[in-house]
Simulated scan of single mutants.
Amino acid sequence: MHAPATRWKTRTAKLLRTTALSLLAAAAVAGVGAGPALAADGDVTWTVRTASNSYGATRSSYSYNVNPGGTIEDGMVVANRGTAPLNLTVYAADGFTTESGQLDLLTRDKKSVAIGAWVHANAASVAIQPGKTATVPFKISVPANATPGDYVGGVLTSLTQPDQAEGINVDRRLGIRIKLRVGGELKPALAIEDFDVDYKCTWNPFGRGDATISYKVHNTGNAALSSQQAASVSGPFGLLRTKARDLPKTPELLPGESWQVTVPVKDVSPAIRLAATAGLTPLLTDASGSVTPLDKVEKTTHAWVLPWTLLLLLLVLIAIVVLAIRLGRRNRTARKQREEARVQEAVEQRLREQQQ
Rank of each mutant, 00 (worst) to 15 (best):
N122L: 03
A124L: 12
A124R: 13
A124M: 12
A124T: 14
S125H: 13
S125F: 13
S125E: 15
A127W: 10
A127S: 15
Q129F: 11
Q129D: 15
Q129H: 11
Q129A: 15
P130R: 12
T133P: 07
T135G: 04
T135S: 08
V136H: 08
P137L: 10
P137Y: 07
F138E: 05
F138T: 05
K139G: 00
K139L: 07
K139W: 01
K139N: 10
I140H: 05
I140R: 04
I140Y: 03
I140T: 02
S141R: 09
V142L: 07
P143G: 08
P143M: 12
P143L: 06
N145P: 04
N145D: 15
P148I: 12
P148S: 11
G149Y: 06
G153R: 02
G153H: 06
G154D: 13
G154A: 13
L156P: 09
L156N: 14
L156H: 11
T157D: 12
L159V: 14
L159P: 05
L159N: 10
Q161K: 10
Q161G: 01
Q161Y: 02
Q161V: 12
Q161A: 07
P162Q: 03
P162E: 07
D163N: 15
A165P: 04
A165W: 01
A165G: 07
E166V: 07
E166C: 08
G167R: 00
G167V: 05
G167Q: 02
I168D: 05
N169W: 11
N169P: 03
N169G: 11
V170L: 02
D171K: 13
R172I: 13
R172E: 06
R173L: 15
L174N: 14
L174A: 11
G175E: 05
G175I: 02
G175K: 06
I178D: 01
K179A: 10
L180Q: 01
L180N: 02
R181D: 01
V182H: 09
V182Q: 05
G183L: 07
G184L: 11
L186K: 05
L186F: 00
L186N: 02
L186D: 01
K187T: 14
K187H: 12
L190K: 03
L190A: 01
A191H: 00
A191Q: 08
E193A: 12
D194H: 13
D194N: 14
V197M: 14
D198P: 00
C201T: 12
T202V: 14
T202P: 00
T202K: 11
W203V: 03
N204M: 01
P205G: 04
P205M: 09
F206W: 15
R208C: 08
G209A: 08
I213D: 05
I213H: 01
S214N: 13
S214A: 15
K216S: 07
H218Q: 05
H218W: 14
N219K: 10
G221P: 03
A223L: 10
A223Y: 00
A224I: 03
L225R: 00
S226I: 09
S227V: 05
S227F: 03
Q228M: 05
S232D: 11
V233A: 02
G235T: 00
F237G: 00
F237D: 03
G238F: 13
G238V: 13
L239G: 02
R241C: 00
T242H: 11
K243P: 01
A244Q: 07
A244T: 12
D246G: 03
K249P: 04
K249A: 06
T250S: 08
L254M: 10
P255L: 10
P255F: 08
